[in-house]
């Protein structure tokens, strides 16, 4: 495609997106205005629902402090997420290709999945202390299962005839994996990554609830202890922003890797 058309297409998309965002922004503004009026008219006490202006002010005041807590939480989320990607994909490949792993380990992985990971939190704190490690581990535990399952599905759902084709070319198991199964599984893998990155956020925050002295989850619990609802809202906004940005980063990587896939063609731009 010539550059000029590509450029126009890109611009048109951007404009379309902005139009979509304009409506979303409109709803946001009206919502804030209603809440502001409600708070100022004294319809409910400010410790239940603080005025949006108060939250905004608090966000500005605490920005420096929050930034530091945010970095802590970010490290935990990203650490847990990466661990989940590596372990999830490797386990999936092992389960698909090594019958013993499927028979011996897969049932236990399912058992692990049905244990509420939050319930494991206190145990992890005893084992690993109050540092990054238990939070990363909880984030990992929550996030790896969907990655593993979707990768397995992706690798198994290769058509029989495609495998036949590879065999008739004399392809080894190894080259069948790298040339066919892995790329074929990628759309599934990326689908699960979007789910996993939000789950990892939940895992890290919950880990901080259980025992931490820094991080956005810690701020939330701390604010809760002192009935500082405004600070709680500020922390919530930070957490949501982190989750949203991470989601968009995964989405961008997906678009870059899967330009060939149906889900990424014009008009299907999800994010």
């Amino acid at each position: 495609m010539p550059d000029t058309t590509a450029g126009t297409v890109w611009m048109r998309r951007w404009v379309e997106r902005s139009v979509g965002l304009r409506d979303a922004f409109l709803v946001f503004v009206v919502g804030c205005a209603l809440l502001e009026v409600g708070a100022r008219a004294g319809l409910y006490p400010p410790y239940v629902l603080p005025a949006p202006s108060a939250i905004a002010l608090r966000l500005v005041e605490t920005a420096g402090l929050m930034w530091g807590h945010m970095l802590t939480t970010l490290v935990e989320i990203v650490g847990g997420f990466f661990l989940a990607v590596v372990v999830g994909v490797l386990l999936a490949a092992a389960i698909v290709f090594i019958p013993f792993v499927e028979r011996g380990f897969y049932p236990w992985l399912v058992v692990l999945q049905v244990i509420p990971k939050v319930a494991l939190g206190p145990l992890l704190i005893i084992w690993l202390g109050f540092g990054y490690l238990p939070k990363i581990l909880i984030a990992f535990l929550v996030a790896f299962f969907p990655i593993m399952i979707d990768t397995m599905v992706g690798m198994k759902s290769v058509e029989r005839d495609a495998v036949f084709l590879m065999r008739s070319m004399g392809a080894s198991q190894r080259s069948t994996f790298f040339l066919l199964r892995l790329p074929h599984a990628l759309p599934h893998v990326f689908g699960s990554l979007k789910v996993a990155v939000t789950l990892a956020t939940v895992g890290a925050i919950v880990g901080e609830f259980i025992g931490a002295d820094e991080g956005l989850g810690y701020v939330l619990i701390f604010a809760n202890g002192s009935m500082d609802t405004t600070l709680m809202f500020a922390a919530l906004i930070w957490i949501s922003a982190v989750a949203l940005v991470l989601y968009m980063v995964v989405g961008a990587i997906e678009r870059a890797c899967l330009s060939w896939h149906v889900s990424q063609r014009s008009g299907a731009g999800a994010a």
């Binding site: 590879m166 004399g170 040339l179 074929h184 896939h261």
Partner: peptide, 30 residues
Amino acid sequence: PLTDIGIVFQRDLLFEWRTVLDNVLLQAEV
């Protein structure tokens, strides 16, 4: 499996992540 054969299926089984040329060259790569 015979390997010195050419085989075509009902579904074309092109790899969506490869260009046309790279799909043909899959044979050479393997």
